[in-house]
C-alpha cells in the first residue's frame, strides 16, 4: 500500500529546496548582471560587488537546510520511513514558510542588491551602507527558516 504520509513529507522537503533554489538563482542572476555592468567600466569594484551579488544566495542554502532536516527526520536518509498521512501533511505544512517566503525574499533581495550595486558603482565609499539595504530583506528569510525548523522538530516529536 502506498505510504501517502511519506509522499507529502518528501514533497515538502523537495519543494523547500526547489523553490528556494529557484528564487536564489534568480536573485543572484539579477545581481550578477548589475555587478558585471559595474565591473565592465570599473574592474576594481569586483570584490565589493561580488559580496552584494552573493547576498540573495542564502535563501537557497536555507531551503537546502530545511530539506536536509526534513529528510533526516522522515527517515529517507536512514531509519524507518513509516509515517501516518496526518504526520506527512504536518511535515509539508512545516516546510511551507520556507517554500513560500524564501523564493519571494530571494528575488526581492536580488532587486535590492541590484540597486545597491549601482550605488557602490557610483560611490564606492558607500559600500558599508549599501550592504544594509539588501541585508534587511534577509530578516524575513531567517524568520521563515526559524519557524520551519521549530515546526519540523515539533512534528517529529508528535506521536500520531
Amino acid at each position: 500500500m502506498i505510504n501517502f504520509g511519506l509522499v507529502f513529507a518528501l514533497a515538502g522537503a523537495a519543494l523547500a529546496a526547489a523553490t528556494s533554489g529557484v528564487g536564489s538563482a534568480k536573485g543572484v542572476g539579477m545581481a550578477g548582471q548589475a555587478a558585471a555592468g559595474v565591473c565592465t567600466d570599473n574592474p576594481d569594484m569586483f570584490s565589493k560587488v561580488l559580496i552584494l551579488q552573493l547576498l540573495p544566495g542564502t535563501q537557497g542554502i536555507y531551503g537546502l537546510l530545511i530539506a536536509f532536516i526534513c529528510l533526516s527526520q522522515i527517515g529517507i536518509m536512514g531509519g524507518s520511513a513509516d509515517m501516518s498521512l496526518v504526520k506527512g501533511l504536518l511535515y509539508l505544512a512545516a516546510c511551507l514558510p520556507v517554500i513560500i517566503v524564501e523564493p519571494v525574499s530571494a528575488v526581492n533581495q536580488g532587486k535590492a542588491s541590484v540597486a545597491s550595486i549601482a550605488m557602490v558603482g557610483k560611490k564606492p565609499e558607500t559600500f558599508g551602507k549599501s550592504m544594509i539595504f539588501p541585508a534587511m530583506v534577509e530578516t524575513y528569510a531567517i524568520l521563515a527558516l526559524l519557524i520551519s525548523i521549530l515546526a519540523i522538530f515539533g512534528v517529529a516529536a508528535l506521536s500520531i
Binding site: 548582471q33 555592468g37 559595474v38 565592465t40 570599473n42 541590484v114 550595486i117 558603482g121 557610483k122
Partner: peptide, 11 residues
C-alpha cells in the same frame, strides 16, 4: 539590469 549598471558607471 546590465545595461543600467553600465550607464550608472558612465554617469
Amino acid at each position: 539590469i546590465y545595461a543600467v549598471a553600465r550607464i550608472r558607471s558612465r554617469e
